[in-house]
């Protein structure tokens, strides 16, 4: 008799993977293109959490994993990590963002105006069930504005700083290769500013929302006011080794500033990410706003929220509990049984 079906494990895992993939069917260019066109916000979310801006690869990751979001992000990150770093893009400032949507809750109107842009905020969330009855849903076309909003807008915090309402963070002079990269070095605490913002940018949306929401509900010190929320496109300027600067294209980005009264000034929290993802940016900026002086071990302490919003690590650890643990379990059983036997032998006085 064989001790174990030695190759059983290998056959079993091969077949279980086939079961999963068979259900997805064949994946081709058409499917990838369709996903990219139909689900841009989901593609954005995957790109943001994977820290890799490539809509085709993100759509492929979604296709390959059947939309199992944690898997999609992991497969894209695992691809990203093997790619060489050829250069560092130039700094993108808020005023140079090609802005599609920029709103502020802090003022009725702001320099540059409230630009609503694309949003479901004021839509009635009604399911278009007619589609299922064979009647396609054709969205009405947008009426072009007679006076389009300017494409470039200053940040609201810049106006507040000019009016001595907020102290802007000192301009970070670190540039190029010297910028700390959280994908190339470990996150340590107190966290470098670049690491904090990068970690929030690639954090898992749901986790950031959960902890940000906790802070908003009262587990944080500061109640956020959305100073500005912006959906935009950023020009990626890189330098050829021969010295010529050129644009490598535009990437969709979102960013949020939130403020709250801190003494006689406003405290400022900030977050930005690849793709358009408003909930994540507002939540992340709220955590950033609350981090200063947060008690150790609280949900708004940097170490707590940066570790626990890391989606790839969190989801991986969660599913690892499916792995067999019978050795550790056996070891615990042994200690428990021995302690129990001791109690029988030596009853408590």
């Amino acid at each position: 008799m064989a001790y174990v079906a030695t190759r059983g494990g290998e056959r079993a895992i091969a077949q279980s993977e086939r079961l999963f993939r068979e259900a997805m069917g064949q994946i081709d260019m058409t499917r990838v293109a369709e996903l990219k066109a139909a689900l841009p916000y989901l593609v954005d979310r995957v790109m943001g959490e994977a820290s890799l801006y490539d809509e085709d690869l993100a759509a492929l990751a979604l296709a390959q994993t059947g939309g199992e979001l944690y898997e999609a992000v992991l497969v894209l990150r695992a691809w990203r990590t093997t790619q060489p770093r050829l250069g560092v893009g130039a700094v993108v400032e808020q005023g140079t963002l090609f802005t599609h949507r920029r709103i502020s809750a802090a003022f009725k109107d702001i320099p540059g105006g409230q630009v609503l842009g694309p949003t479901l905020d004021y839509s009635h969330r009604v399911l278009e069930t007619d589609v299922l009855a064979g009647k396609p849903f054709a969205p009405p076309l947008v009426d072009p504005a007679t006076a389009p909003a300017p494409a470039y807008q200053p940040s609201v915090s810049a106006w507040q700083a000019a009016n001595d309402l907020v102290d802007l963070p000192l301009s970070d002079k670190v540039a190029g290769e010297a910028i700390a990269d959280v994908t190339r070095e470990p996150l340590l605490f107190p966290s470098k500013r670049a690491h904090t913002l990068q970690s929030l940018a690639r954090a898992e949306t749901g986790s950031v929302l959960a902890l940000g929401y906790a802070a908003m509900r009262g587990y944080g010190q500061a109640h956020p006011t959305v100073n500005e929320l912006r959906l935009a496109e950023a020009e990626v300027m890189v330098k050829h080794p021969n010295g010529t600067a050129f644009s490598a294209g535009r990437v969709k980005v979102s960013q949020a500033e939130v403020v709250s009264k801190q003494g006689e000034k406003l405290g400022l929290g900030f977050a930005a990410t690849f793709g358009w993802n408003e909930v994540k940016c507002i939540s992340a900026a709220t955590l950033d706003l609350n981090a200063k002086g947060a008690p150790k071990g609280s949900a708004t302490e940097e170490e707590f929220f940066l570790y626990h919003t890391e989606g790839v690590e969190a989801s991986g650890f969660c599913i690892h509990f499916k792995l067999p643990h019978y050795v550790t379990f056996q070891s615990s059983l042994d200690a428990m049984r021995d302690a129990k036997a001791k109690q029988v032998k030596e009853p408590a006085e």
Partner: peptide, 16 residues
């Protein structure tokens, strides 16, 4: 010793 710990094509917690 802290290290960057790159992603690999396996889930975190599974021996990465």
């Amino acid at each position: 010793m802290p290290y960057a710990s790159r992603e690999v094509p396996m889930a975190r917690g599974w021996g990465t």
